[in-house]
Simulated scan of single mutants.
Amino acid sequence: MFVRTVYATGDPAELGTAIRALNSEGRDLLEERPGYRGAGVFVDRNLGKLLTVSWWESEQARHNSDEVMRERRTALLAPFAGTLAVENYEVAVFHVLPRPTAHGGLHLIRLEFEPADADQLADAFHATVVPRLEALPGLARAALFLDRERGHGLAGTLFTDHHSLAASRAAQAAARQAGAAKVQMAVVGLEEFEVVHADAHAG
């Protein structure tokens, strides 16, 4: 599986307009694309941040979809988006528990690593980090996305509610430390978002 992320920042007062456009026209456009396997929308309403993640069954499907989405993206996110960054990743780990995610919370870690260590990082996340995370109350998903060429990654955990996310912070810090002990990596960003919706069919 492969994903494309879109990270936008702008005026918090305009964020609702972008969310409505993504949940209507944006979702329709994605669902028309071959190889589409789901999407998520995550926001920070106070700071004015928006993250979208779309899932694709192959790199080619993701590439083909972007030819259409690139033309419509700016209009969909207007007038909210003042800055826009688009990135592509491979889904290295995707661990799902059958729990609801709407209106829950996303804990997101931005990573940097040596490209040659990508497989070692994925193994460490699956074998060391996931077992620590899956015992956390309210956990719904844990995922690791990798850009092997650039040595960039995203590690995300979704929770059913914000209370569970907040209560997990100490345990997540311990899990990060345990993972870092297995493979050399740098945590370069730590963020939290509200889950507007999150659906992905990675099987």
Rank of each mutant, 00 (worst) to 15 (best):
V96H: 12
M185K: 14
L106C: 12
T83E: 08
L133F: 06
H107G: 07
Q120A: 15
H63G: 02
V96A: 05
Q60D: 12
R99Y: 04
V129F: 07
V86K: 03
A143T: 06
G105N: 00
V96W: 02
V68Q: 07
A78E: 10
F80K: 03
S164G: 04
F94T: 00
D66N: 11
R132N: 05
A142M: 02
P131M: 02
H152R: 15
L144W: 03
A102T: 11
D123E: 13
D161H: 03
M185H: 14
L121P: 01
A75D: 15
E71K: 15
L136M: 04
F80M: 01
D119N: 06
R148A: 12
F125E: 01
V130Y: 00
E67W: 06
L77M: 03
R110V: 11
A92E: 00
E71N: 14
A135S: 11
D119Q: 15
H162K: 07
L97F: 01
A170N: 15
G82S: 10
T101Y: 03
F113A: 07
M69W: 01
R70M: 09
L84S: 04
Q172L: 08
A116V: 04
P98Q: 05
H95Y: 10
V86N: 01
V68H: 12
L106S: 01
F159L: 03
